[in-house]
Design a protein around this nucleic acid. Structure first.
Lengths: 124, 124
DNA sequence: CTCGTGTTCAACCATGCGGTTGAGTACAGC
DNA sequence: GCTGTACTCAACCGCATGGTTGAACACGAG
C-alpha cells in the first residue's frame, strides 16, 4: 500500500545493501554495463539487474541504451539529499552538546558562588 | 545467521525508516525517554522500543538508566561514517563528470554516429 | 509488600527483500 | 531469418523487518 516511500527513505534503503554500495563505488569511477557490474559478485545477472533497479528508483543511477547494453550512470546529485539531512541534525546535536558542555562548565562554577567569576565560556 | 552486517549497512538501514529518521531528528534537539519518543506516533510502545534498538545496533544512539526510564541519547559521531562514504564517491563522480565535461568541450564539433539525447538539465 | 509506571521480552503475523530459475525481449552478426 | 549476447520480466522461496498483543521485569511511591 505505502509504495510511495519518500525519496530519502529510498536512498538510504538502497545504500543499506553492501553490494549496492559497492556498485555505486565502482560507478563513481565511470559508467558500466549490467554484466560488467555483475562480474565481481557471485550472484545471477538478474539479481544485479534488480539491484540496479533499486538504485534507479532511489534516483542514484539511470540507465541508457547502447545496442543490447544498458550502461549504468551514477547520478551523484542525490547524495546532497542525504548530506543535507545528516548535516542538519549533526550540527544541531553538536550545537546542543556544546551548549550542554558550556552549561556544565557554568554549573561547575555555580556550586561555589565565588568561582562564578571564572569566564570559561570561550573554552571549547 | 549473517547478523554481522557491517556498520555502514546498519546505519543506512536504520535511517531508511521515516519513523526512525524522525526520532533521530527529535533526539538531535535533546535526549528523550521511550514514551516521550513514542508519543507522536500512532504505534505501540513496543514498536518504538524496537526502533530504538535498531538505532542502537547501528551505533546511532545509546540508552542510559534513570529509575524506570531509559533516556535515549543521540550519538552523532556515526554520521561521520556516512558523510565520509558519501563524500568520497560524490567527489570522485564529480571529478569524473568535470573531466568528461572538459573532454566534450574539446571534442565539440565531432559528432558520433549515434546521437544521444541529453536530457540533463546540466549543473543545477 | 503491593501497586503503578516505564520499558523490554516473546510469540506471532503480514509484508518486503535478496536471491533463485525459466521464459521473454531486443539487438548485432553471420 | 537464425543464432548468440545482453538484459528484463515473472514466479517463486526463505528470511528479515515492522507491526501487533500479552506477559515479565525494574524501580519508586505508598
Amino acid at each position: 500500500m505505502v509504495e510511495h516511500e519518500d525519496r530519502l527513505s529510498r536512498v538510504f534503503s538502497a545504500l543499506a545493501d553492501p553490494t549496492r554500495r559497492d556498485m555505486v563505488a565502482r560507478l563513481a569511477a565511470g559508467d558500466a554495463t549490467v554484466s560488467e557490474l555483475a562480474a565481481p559478485y557471485d550472484v545471477s545477472l538478474q539479481a544485479v539487474s534488480k539491484h540496479i533497479q533499486v538504485l534507479q528508483d532511489a534516483g542514484l543511477v539511470h540507465r541508457s541504451k547502447d545496442a543490447q547494453r544498458r550502461p549504468v550512470h551514477l547520478d551523484a546529485e542525490v547524495f546532497d539529499l542525504m548530506t543535507k539531512w545528516i548535516e542538519r541534525y549533526r550540527a544541531q546535536a553538536e550545537a546542543r552538546y556544546q551548549r550542554l558542555d558550556a552549561l556544565l562548565d557554568r554549573l561547575q562554577g555555580k556550586t561555589t558562588e565565588d568561582e562564578q567569576e571564572q569566564t570559561k565560556g570561550a573554552a571549547g
